[in-house]
Every structure is written in C-alpha cells, then in structure tokens.
C-alpha cells in the first residue's frame, strides 16, 4: 500500500504524540530522581535537573527499609515464580493434552478467579492463614502469590504445550519412553521459550503486586518494595520527592530488564502463535 506524504506526516505526528504521552512521565521521573532537594523547594520546575545530583540514590539506598523491601520483593517474586512453574506445568500439560473432566472445571476456575474482587478473597485468606501462622510471613505471601498467579500461568502454558507437535511425543512413546520421560526429554526443551516468558510474567506480577501484600504483611522488615514506596508517599509530614523518585526508578529496573527480554518474545512468536491458535 502506498501512503501519501500528508498521511505519512500525520502518522508520524500521531506516533510522536503517543510517545510523548507514554514516555514523558518516565523521563520526568528520571529527571526528578536527579534533582537536589533545593530544586524541589523552588517553584519553577524544569525538565533537566540544574545540576545532576546522585545524592537521591544514595539517600534512597541508605534508607534501610528500601533495601530490605528490595530484597523481600526479590525473594518473594523468585520463590513464587519457581513454585508457579513447578506446579502449573503438569496441569498445563494435562489441560492441553487430555480431554479430562477437570478441564472445563479448571478453565472455569481461571475465569472466576479473574472476575472476583480481591477484597472478597483477602478477608477469608487472612483467616485461613492466621491459624497456620502464615500471616505476616514471607512464605505466606509466596504461596498466596503462587495460587493467584496460577490462572495466568496456566492459560499461557497450555497454549505453549498445545503448540508442541503431538507427533513428537507419540514417536517417543512408540520408542517405549514413559509419559514422564517424554515430558522431560521431549516437551520441556521445546517449551523453554514459553517457560521463560511465563516465568518473567509471573515474576513481574509478583514484583508489582500491592493488595495482598498490603493486607498480609505488617512487619516493616517484611514489607515488599511497593509497600515501602507507598509509605514514603503518604507521610503527611514531609514528602522527599528526590529520594522517592530515585527509589521508584530503582523499583522499576528489575521488571524493565525482564521486560526487555520478554518483549521480544511477546511481539514475535508468542503473539502471532497465540492469536492464530
């Protein structure tokens, strides 16, 4: 299709508008994180910091709660990601390969778990975890995240499993390999890209999660990064914008890095595959 020059110009103008809308906030956050406190006390803002000041980053990092929050978030996100994969892969395999009665039930559950407002779940969850001594603990949050990221992981994974040609497995089973061996030696390697994408996805959602953590974690030592950051903002007393912005940038880095990887897959194979399916 040929595009006329006028239309082309309009297209570029539109893209620029979109990008300003989407990227400018992030730029501002970055620049804020480099501004000195005095610059914040002034009343005319500028996009570029007058003099670049890394003090906010060292302030943010010296804030004890923040580093701990970072570690807690990492711990929780990694643990729940591993658990989710371990538990979901067999289920996803069964969902994609067998037409069992569990399949409609599982898909129903996946749907329902998306529709329900978390407020309805969090109160009973709290009551269940309390006698198990799992409220206000990291393992408690990990298993909650595991269960609540499963719907997504399952849905993603079963698509990937279905994309693995069945013939390969059949060939293996003709060769006498058992089901488990077939899964481990034939399906798993082919699933690697899918597993990685699912893992990153689970990681990001755990890293970003706020609500369950807010209710389940009360000890300041256990709080995740989003909770620590939210506490910074709220304080009626003084909001130190600089360190807050610096901390926010730091909190975004891990998911951005993961995302950079994930993005390639998202826009290439996964997308077209999923949509065609």
């Amino acid at each position: 299709m040929r595009t006329r020059p006028v239309a082309r110009t309009l297209q570029y103008a539109a893209v620029v508008c979109y990008l300003v809308f989407l990227a400018f906030p992030l730029l501002w956050l970055l620049s804020s994180s480099l501004k000195s406190p005095r610059e914040f006390a002034g009343i005319t803002p500028s996009l570029l910091p007058k003099d670049v000041d890394l003090g906010n980053y060292s302030d943010a990092l010296s804030e004890q709660g923040l580093v701990r929050g970072l570690m807690n978030s990492l711990q929780i996100s990694i643990a729940s990601t591993i658990l989710v994969l371990v538990v979901s892969l067999p289920v996803a395999y069964a969902l994609a390969r067998f037409r069992s009665r569990l399949r409609p039930v599982t898909n129903g559950w996946i749907l329902v778990s998306q529709v329900f407002p978390v407020i309805l779940i969090v109160i009973p969850l709290f009551m269940i975890l309390r006698p198990l001594h799992l409220t206000n603990t990291i393992p408690g949050v990990v298993i909650v995240y595991m269960v609540w990221s499963m719907p997504f992981a399952l849905w993603m994974l079963q698509g990937y499993v279905a994309a693995v040609p069945r013939e390969l497995e059949e060939a293996a089973s003709v060769d006498g390999a058992g089901r488990l061996r077939t899964i481990v030696s034939i399906v798993m390697p082919l699933l690697r890209p899918g597993l990685i994408a699912t893992a990153m996805f689970t990681f990001i959602s755990a890293w970003n999660e706020f609500f369950f953590a807010l209710v389940l974690l009360q000890d300041p030592e256990l709080k995740t990064l989003p909770l620590v950051l939210a506490r910074f903002v709220g304080a009626e007393g003084q909001v130190q914008f600089g360190p807050l912005a610096a901390a926010s940038v730091l909190a975004t880095v891990p998911s951005l890095v993961f995302f950079a990887f994930l993005q390639r897959r998202l826009t290439s194979g996964l997308l077209s595959g999923a949509v065609k399916g």
Partner: peptide, 20 residues
C-alpha cells in the same frame, strides 16, 4: 520498628486481627 501515621490505623486493625 518504623510505622507511619498515614497507615497506622489500617495496619493496627490487621495486626490486632492477625495477632501480630
């Protein structure tokens, strides 16, 4: 242990309720 004025009420509700 560091708490915060903004969230103290909600936090205490959950802490009392959770026995923590």
């Amino acid at each position: 242990v560091q708490g915060s004025w903004d969230s103290v009420h909600d936090q205490l509700v959950t802490q009392f309720q959770g026995g923590t």
